[in-house]
């Protein structure tokens, strides 16, 4: 849950990057860390295996400029994508205010993406949450792959709900679509927690 420290004029919001193994969650955080103003960000911390796979989580903290006398601090986490770390993902999801679901666009990764999406929904439920309640943005990563699935198919598979999530195409190692995704989830959270108007929100894709 968002933590609002009124006396110190600070709001803290937790965003979790979720998705299957090798979909690019850590790469998203690395690209954000590489791109953003040093004044706005903490170090990027990775709890990884010796093979550079995420073992527990990656973490970084970002501060917005002051808005109405308040500073908003976004706490970005990734979860380990590998199937065996189910319970770890549940732990990292605790207290999440927003989700970025990262989809690997490779055709051959669709079973893993679908499994991860189901896993997300189950783990949200275990934290008494659902995708209908929690702000969510979908990122279709690895759009530079020659064998990537088309966007219409991906939208049908992962964004086929009554209220559709904003979605973005990305090539995370090049930083493409990464900051756009981050700003979309940041705005969704501001809308939810500070009654900010919807103006400037990236619209959900048309069918």
């Amino acid at each position: 849950m968002a933590y609002i420290n009124y006396a110190q004029r600070e709001i803290q919001l937790k965003v979790v990057y979720y998705g299957c193994g090798f979909c690019g969650k850590t790469t998203n955080l690395q690209a954000i860390h590489h791109t953003l103003d040093p004044q706005q960000k903490s170090d990027l911390v990775s709890l990884a295996t010796s093979g550079d796979r995420t073992l527990f989580f990656d973490f970084m903290s970002l501060k917005t400029p002051t808005l109405n006398n308040f500073t908003v601090r976004f706490q970005l986490y990734t979860v380990p994508g590998q199937q065996i770390y189910m319970s770890t993902r549940q732990l990292v999801l605790r207290g999440a205010d927003g989700i970025v679901f990262v989809v690997d666009s490779g055709w051959d990764r669709m079973p893993e993406n679908v499994e991860s999406f189901q896993d997300l929904q189950e783990n949200l439920l275990a934290n008494n949450l659902s995708l209908a309640q929690i702000p969510c943005v979908i990122q279709y990563n690895k759009r530079d792959l020659p064998e990537s699935a088309n966007i219409e198919y991906l939208e049908y598979a992962f964004n086929n709900r009554a209220i559709r999530a904003p979605s973005f195409e990305a090539v995370a190692p090049r930083g493409e679509g990464v900051i756009e995704t981050l700003n979309a989830i940041a705005r969704l959270l501001m809308v939810k927690y500070s009654k900010t108007s919807q103006a400037g929100m990236a619209p959900a894709r048309a069918q």
Binding site: I4, N5, L67, L182, N183, R187, M190, S194, T196, S197
Partner: peptide, 20 residues
């Protein structure tokens, strides 16, 4: 804090300017 924050007017964001 949550109650007081809920009584505040909306935070106005410039649509043309990214938050981060």
């Amino acid at each position: 804090g949550a109650i007081a924050f809920g009584q505040l007017p909306p935070i106005e964001l410039d649509p043309a300017r990214p938050l981060l």
